[in-house]
């Protein structure tokens, strides 16, 4: 019984982090039509920045905020310096066909991932580091009994819940949120309405950068920080995004939680070795039974 509850808690906290990763991926996918494989590389980079600041003696929260800012800036830079020039329509040659126009930015994101990982290796000498938590990460003991979770678990759940609420309000209640949805859904009508879609896209990249940096900050205390620790997180986050339908923000969040729980259950009750096999089977099942993902945006007829 106790194992089950612990497992569910672990699954929920991990799921919360996967939800953030998936959210970041979906934001860029919807906003710019690109699957950003560099995303967790950006997160790794900003987590290293935070770690360096903490080692230098700055407080956790200062480092936390700087890391989020670095995440936003890196996201914007990837768009402005690489993606925007690459997707410009005036490019002839390799980018002439639609399939190349869709593929090249994805390949570019893999390149950026490589660059970020080698840069981090050069700057931080590829040393593995631990990463602190702002609150205790040993199990809380109310009334002398050991609870199945730690303060840090609660912290993760609260931070992710807040992030999701803020994101939802931003998209539903603000003009910029509306501009972002319109740009993702129909760039032509958005432009005709006066929405500056390239700025909106850069903003999508920046917000995605913040979400994934947050994921990096929350997950590294339970892993070790090295230039490629977050690669696996990206794979799980991507699976979560696909399970959720890839273009649905709520879907990506639910997908993240489902995968978190699935992984925790397989880890504890089957074997840690089978986690990726289970992920693959689950992904295939979803794709076969519901090809558009569990939460594919409701189709509205376009006639």
């Amino acid at each position: 019984m106790n194992t089950l509850i612990t497992t569910l808690f672990l699954g929920t906290t991990r799921g919360a982090v996967f939800a953030l990763v998936a959210l970041g991926l979906v934001l860029v996918w919807r906003g710019a039509g690109i699957v950003n494989f560099a995303q967790m590389g950006q997160a790794m980079f900003s987590t290293y920045v935070a770690s360096t600041l903490i080692i230098k003696g700055y407080g956790y929260w200062f480092a936390f905020l700087i890391a989020l800012a670095v995440g936003a800036i890196l996201g914007a830079i990837v768009d402005l310096a690489v993606m925007r020039p690459l997707t410009r329509r005036s490019h002839a040659g390799v980018l002439a066909s639609d399939s190349m126009r869709a593929t090249v930015p994805v390949i570019a994101s893999l390149g950026i991932l490589g660059v970020l990982q080698s840069l981090a290796g050069m700057i931080w000498a590829a040393e593995e580091r631990g990463f602190p938590t702002p609150v205790s990460d040993v199990a809380v003991k109310p009334f002398g009994k050991t609870a199945p979770f730690t303060k840090f678990d609660l912290f993760i759940i609260v931070v992710v819940a807040l992030t999701l609420v803020v994101t939802t309000l931003f998209f539903k209640k603000t003009g910029m949120g509306l501009a972002m949805r319109a740009t993702a859904l129909n760039p032509e009508v958005a432009r005709l309405s006066g929405i500056r879609i390239s700025r909106v896209r850069t903003l999508s990249w920046a917000i995605s950068g913040v979400a994934s940096s947050l994921a990096g900050l929350l997950i590294t205390p339970s892993a070790n920080l090295s230039p490629n620790t977050l690669d696996l997180i990206l794979i799980v986050g991507f699976t979560a995004a696909v399970v959720g339908g890839l273009d649905s923000l709520p879907g990506s969040v639910v997908g993240g939680f489902i995968l978190g729980l699935l992984i925790a259950v397989i880890n504890v009750y089957v074997s840690p070795d089978d986690v990726f096999l289970a992920l693959l089977v689950f992904l295939l099942l979803v794709l076969i039974l519901k090809p558009g993902g569990l939460f594919a945006s409701k189709k509205v007829r376009n006639v």
């Binding site: 003009g175 509306l178 501009a179 949805r181 319109a182 859904l185 129909n186 032509e188 009508v189 958005a190 005709l192 309405s193 006066g194 929405i195 945006s297 409701k298 509205v300 007829r301 376009n302």
Partner: peptide, 22 residues
């Protein structure tokens, strides 16, 4: 533009608001 160019997954109010966002 041609063909009832509205953004189908947005509400009516949002479609209208969109035109005045700028």
């Amino acid at each position: 533009p041609e063909g009832h160019a509205v953004i189908a997954p947005l509400t009516v109010a949002e479609n209208i608001e969109m035109g005045a966002l700028f």
